[in-house]
Design a binder for these strands. Structure first.
Lengths: 193, 193
DNA sequence: ACATTTTTGTAGTAATCAATACAAAATAAA
DNA sequence: TTTATTTTGTATTGATTACTACAAAAATGT
């Protein structure tokens, strides 16, 4: 291949952009913010991301979806998948303040974009539904093999978990305090006993 | 009083502005959007709201806080306050699609403003904490008088309810379907038995 | 060395942003 | 009727928005 070589890696650009979007959302993030974070000029930017700001945001969501897929692979490979999920929630009580305040990029996007950009909102909803479906599958299995005693339908319990996730990402902004959050998580998980 | 009379009522302006902010959030709502909705010119607008767009948004939040205060008055006057709260949650399963998609102005604001405008975010967090405190008081009382058997600390159960509220406002955007939401609400409320 | 291809950096675009300036309009008090 | 006061509508501000045009720079292949 010939031509002037790129001085950045696309993946690294994406991660820096994702961080800004995660904090400020789509609308409040300006192109200037993004270019400063990525440390590239607008020439390179539009050369790399032909779809502009919206494509970049969409890619940030998809990158988050990829992170979920990696987690799902661990869950699927586990002999105690429900335990893996519970451990994930418990691990939230060890996060730092910045992480608490950022919340969840996907849930943030659903909230921000419903009446702003339908396609981006739908993209985010799809990811949440994928997570929910994984919860449902794991709970169904745990109910069959007796790991879980609660006989409420897996669908409703899975929805309970994703509702908890979305709610928790507001709660942790109200109380970015791991002691408080730990107690909250334990109570909420006890429903899945 | 002398001078040219106003042709609008401030309260009505506020309600129209609140509706736009509720749908699109603070940043994505332009002054043009607001003036179109209020049907006034920028002259009248800045004459009425000296603090501009931000004051208007703050007033919209405070108006929402006022709506909560009215609900709280009903709760405080009731002999079965926990039942009033549960009924409120059950009533959410009878809302229309638009209402589901709008979610909660206060929760939306916490999500949007954390890294955009600290003072507006704090204002919204304060309202959520007020609601939470009301939940805690009511639960404490219900535990004392035996209405509620669950002995988990009222603080954690109150936090459970506000977490549910915030999460539910995402869930209802994923599934603006009253049959689904009704089943979800019943399961979540059963924790408070 | 030279031609070709691609990226980079910069200058500039039109559109929109929130907010102002200010004169005309519309009232009440004197 | 005149004067004082306030609101309204419009024109305009400077800043910022996302995005583009394009020449210089930097590489490879011949």
């Amino acid at each position: 291949m010939r031509g002037r070589p790129t001085i950045f890696k696309e993946q690294e650009l994406l991660e820096k952009a994702q961080h800004i979007f995660w904090e400020k959302g789509y609308t409040a993030t300006s192109l200037e913010d993004l270019l400063n974070a990525m440390k590239i000029g607008s020439g390179s930017f539009y050369n790399t991301f032909k779809g502009g700001k919206k494509e970049l945001f969409s890619r940030a969501i998809q990158q988050r979806r990829e992170a979920f897929a990696e987690f799902k692979a661990i869950v699927d490979a586990s002999t105690a998948p429900l335990q893996v999920i519970k451990d994930f929630y418990r691990s939230l009580a060890h996060a730092d303040k910045q992480t608490h305040l950022q919340g969840c990029l996907i849930a943030n996007t659903v909230t921000e974009m419903t009446f702003v950009d339908q396609s981006l909102e739908e993209e985010a909803v799809r990811v949440l539904k994928e997570v929910e479906q994984m919860y449902i599958n794991v709970i169904e299995k745990a109910q069959r093999d007796g790991t879980m005693k609660n006989k409420t339908s897996a669908e409703i319990l899975g929805r309970y978990l994703i509702t908890f996730w979305c709610g928790f990402n507001v709660t942790r902004r109200m109380y970015p305090d791991n002691a408080i959050l730990k107690a909250q998580i334990e109570m909420q998980l006890s429903v899945l006993s």
